[in-house]
Design a protein around this nucleic acid. Structure first.
Length: 412
RNA sequence: GGAGGAGUACCCAAGUGGCCAAAGGGGGCAGACUGUAAAUCUGUUAGCUCAGCUUUCGAUGGUUCAAAUCCAUCCUCCUCCA
């Protein structure tokens, strides 16, 4: 298999790599042969989010370079909960929830990777973890772990201050066991993951070396953080989901359109496939010009996640709304009936109906502070009533603050 | 199992009988300035039929004209000892 550019160098140049177990050996191995590797995703929610997307980008880069990804859905590990980087205990999830989430993960993952002809594999660790025999597991795997060493691991530090249950303490063993199983079954030699997974990955690589005497490697990737070190991809509504039903393509697009200047280059490198020369050019734009880079970023990421059609729509909507142009058809909004319109003609009732405000108090505040516009006219009376005259071609535009647009279409 | 300590709004955290819908900070939202950025400044941040009323300080019950504050029971968490 021809490999012109070593994928390790690509990942390195784009800023993915945080830590590796054996840098030189890994680079050499990736350069000369197809390698089977895996990344685990614990189904703790019913959709993947941007944090996962970084890992998916890595898998795509690796697959393009001829390597074989295994996407591991953590149906078994989710039963226990990874304590890494957490300050409090995870909520215990029911079996049904986990199953449902695992199914959603599978669906989403298959959009990004080519699973045909064994080019990628999807597994669920519930298949081997749930039926484990406790004593056997302790004897086969448990012997190889030193509690003393585990306690010094970075990922448990914060938890040792707040408390760590035995249940969660075992997470590392389970993940290590996963790696061993995949090594045995698929000759999986590498585990990749977010940097918070470093300890868990090391555990697995060492386990394989001890039990099988084989060579196993690990590599972690920078978590997506802002220049201030905060986790990226968080919105007021929670995470930035990949599921269009949970985060609309328009909102998704807007999130990237609005990233901090300082983060633009990093995001372009990590979240798009644009050539690095282009990334550097866009990232070095200054002042107002950097808006161009943000538009490219938003479009490219949205295209990868939601497809070209949705990306085009999101872009068109953004241009129509912010470019001062007319109101395009693809603007985010909702459709209500004429009865609903009449019954909720009071502006605050309408905002509530549309889900733009959580309570009427919030609505009054917004209006008093001048944050609500109807058809681009500021509303300054909390008793304002919408009239049918406000409708233009059966719709009207409500704006909350500077950026939240909502088109109301009235039918019937 | 024993001894102490803690649970306050989205988060952290003050408040130990009335002046408490509850200081302060963070976060959020809105306004000004801008580039749909950042920083800064201002306002706001329980609900409602909003100068009034209703429901909140782990839960339940009690004392009192009056409780986040006092008492009882329970739940949860932490620390030390075993």
């Amino acid at each position: 298999m021809p490999m012109s550019v070593n994928v390790y160098d690509i990942l390195k140049e784009r800023g993915f790599i945080a830590q590796t177990t054996h840098e030189d050996e890994i680079r050499e191995m990736l350069g000369k042969e197809p390698v089977t590797f895996y990344i685990g995703f614990d189904p703790t929610a019913d959709s993947l989010h941007v944090g996962h997307f970084i890992q998916i980008m890595v898998m795509m880069h690796m697959q393009r370079a001829g390597h074989r990804p295994i996407a591991l859905v953590g149906g078994g590990t989710a039963m226990v909960g990874d304590p890494s980087g957490r300050t409090d205990m995870r909520k215990m999830m029911t079996l049904d929830t986990i199953r449902h989430n695992a199914e959603s993960f599978k669906k989403q993952l298959s959009r990004f990777l080519d699973f045909s002809e064994g080019k990628a594999i999807m597994v669920n660790n519930a298949d081997w973890l749930l039926d484990l025999n406790y004593v056997e597991f302790l004897r086969e795997i448990g012997v190889h772990f030193s509690v003393n060493r585990m306690l010094t691991a970075e990922c448990f530090k914060s938890r040792l201050e707040r408390g760590l249950s035995f249940l969660e303490f075992n997470y590392m063993l389970m993940q290590s066991y996963d790696f061993l199983m995949l090594y045995r079954k698929y000759n999986c030699k590498m585990q990749l993951g977010g940097d918070d997974q470093w300890s868990n990955i090391l555990g697995g690589a060492e386990l394989i070396r001890r039990v099988e005497g084989g060579s196993a490697y690990g590599m972690t990737f920078a978590l997506l953080t802002t220049s201030e070190g905060k986790k990226m991809g968080k919105t007021e509504a929670g995470a930035l989901w990949l599921d269009p039903a949970k985060t609309s393509p328009y909102d998704f697009y807007q999130y990237w359109r609005n990233v901090d200047d300082a983060d633009v280059m990093k995001c372009l490198a990590l979240l798009t496939f644009l050539p690095m020369d282009e990334v550097r050019r866009l990232g070095s734009l200054k002042d107002e010009k950097i808006n161009e880079a943000k538009k490219v970023l938003a479009y490219e990421v949205t295209k990868l996640v939601h497809g070209q059609e949705e990306a085009d729509k999101a872009k068109a909507a953004a241009e129509a709304l912010f470019g001062g142009g007319g109101v395009g058809a693809e603007v985010p909004g909702s459709t209500i009936s004429m009865d609903q319109f009449r019954e909720n003609a009071n502006i605050i009732d309408m905002l509530l109906l549309l889900g733009l405000i959580p309570s009427k108090g919030e609505g009054r505040r917004l209006i008093q502070q001048g944050g609500i516009y109807v058809n681009d006219e500021r509303i300054d009376d909390i008793g304002h009533t919408l009239a049918e005259d406000d409708l233009k071609d059966g719709s009207l535009m409500i704006r909350k603050g500077k950026k939240v647009y909502h088109k109301v279409t009235v039918k019937g």
